Simulated assay, not measured.
Amino acid sequence: MASPSPASPRSRFARAYRAADEEDAANRYFAPQPTSTSDLPDPDVFLRNIARGVMEVFAGVRDVDQLARWLAEDAYRKLVTRSNLAARARSARGQAPQRPVHTIIAVHHSSPRDGVVEGVVVVRGPARTRAIAMRLEGTDGRWRTTSLALL
């Protein structure tokens, strides 16, 4: 039996299959790897620290880039947008950024599946009480905030 010519559909399929297989193998080793909840630190501490950081970003005393390491791209973009709006509002009122005095009242979290935590941090400030809702996912041995909402 003759082998297929380089231009035959069979050989093109074989090359595409090998390329897809090599890409899959590369993703298995080099793409972000999910991490089990048991291999990650306590999410309560992480939720508290991210909430403090978010409140400081909105107050204008912390740069949003300082939190970038712990935020997924979507959450980072939303935080940048909201912090820019807060900075414009402070500028329009003629206010200088001031370090906020916030008290964390409560932290609630649950785990819908292994490696994922959804939590809410209730924060009391001088003017009002707010809630920060977050979704954490374990990736590459650390928590990462994939969703963030300030209510």
Rank of each mutant, 00 (worst) to 15 (best):
Q66V: 06
A75Y: 01
R15Y: 08
F30Q: 14
V101E: 14
G115F: 04
F13I: 11
H108K: 12
N27R: 15
P112V: 10
R28Y: 07
V121T: 05
P97I: 08
P43G: 05
P126R: 13
A106W: 05
V123C: 03
E56L: 06
E137F: 02
A87F: 05
A92H: 03
A19R: 13
D24C: 11
L47C: 02
R18I: 13
P43Q: 07
R142G: 05
I104S: 00
S83R: 03
H109K: 07
A7H: 12
G115V: 01
A2F: 10
L151V: 12
P32Y: 08
L79M: 04
S3P: 07
T37C: 09
A92P: 02
T103G: 02
F58L: 14
Y76N: 04
Q66I: 03
G125E: 03
L67Y: 00
A20M: 12
A96H: 11
T145R: 01
K78G: 14
S83H: 00
L47F: 05
F13A: 14
L85H: 10
P34L: 05
S36G: 05
L40E: 02
K78Q: 14
A19I: 01
T145L: 03
A133Y: 06
R82Q: 14
R52D: 08
D44K: 13
G94T: 02
